[in-house]
Nucleic acid binder design. Structure first.
Lengths: 110, 110
DNA sequence: CAAACATATGAATAACTGTTCATATGTTTA
DNA sequence: TAAACATATGAACAGTTATTCATATGTTTG
């Protein structure tokens, strides 16, 4: 939410140095990617939507831990969810995630 | 260094889920971007090479703190440096940095 | 409605991280 | 070579964070 407010005041292109608030928000965003559990969750969601339990099993991470991390991913607007009965399905919010992770992989595997 | 070893064993494209080691390395990379001081340093270096003292002044961050952060950026192969007398000039290692930060800004300002 | 199930959440703890301070290393110049 | 300067680095401390555990919320089914 706050990101939007800041972002509107700043330039999006890389022609000039982004303003301070934007750089702060940017760091906040990358912090979200800076945890292997969260990155793994995101990559699992590349395949399509998935429920919490399934994610938990695939990663061998407790349901609680996954849920906590999903909350953070939600907060960064990286994932969205829909409820179907008692099951909640999570999926990627948009294509930025794929792009950002793609950029990172490019750097590591250069 | 280790990243290279892992990366070679994994797929770079996004067709399949990247392997565990790669996702771990990826999180490590994003962790580096996940600090506003470091992001600011990187953005300052968009303008070209710059010495430690100058960076320190521009950010109003102590010389020591900047130096510590530059070490981390160096470790992630995001910046390179050259020594000219007593002054050390830092600059971006390659264009990945610009790309990664560009992706991030795109997301925040959507 | 009660029991079972799926998910979310608050508190606590252990591990990690960024800054500061003091000092070391390396380079120039007087 | 001594002093001054630029940078690097180790230790310590404060603040942050990810997981666990216990439990709450919300949903279905018997």
């Amino acid at each position: 939410m706050a990101e939007h407010i800041h972002a509107d005041h700043c330039n999006t292109s890389m022609d000039h140095i982004p303003c301070d608030e934007m750089l702060y928000d940017l760091a906040e965003l990358y912090k979200v990617f800076g945890d292997s559990t969260r990155v793994k969750i995101l990559c699992i969601l590349f395949e399509g939507e998935m429920c919490v339990q399934h994610i938990s099993e695939m990663l061998s991470v407790s349901q609680s831990a996954v849920s906590h991390q999903l909350r953070i991913l939600k907060g960064a607007r990286l994932v969205k969810y829909r409820r179907d009965g008692k099951i909640v399905y999570y999926s990627l919010a948009d294509d930025h995630v794929r792009k950002i992770i793609g950029c990172g992989i490019e750097h590591i595997s250069e």
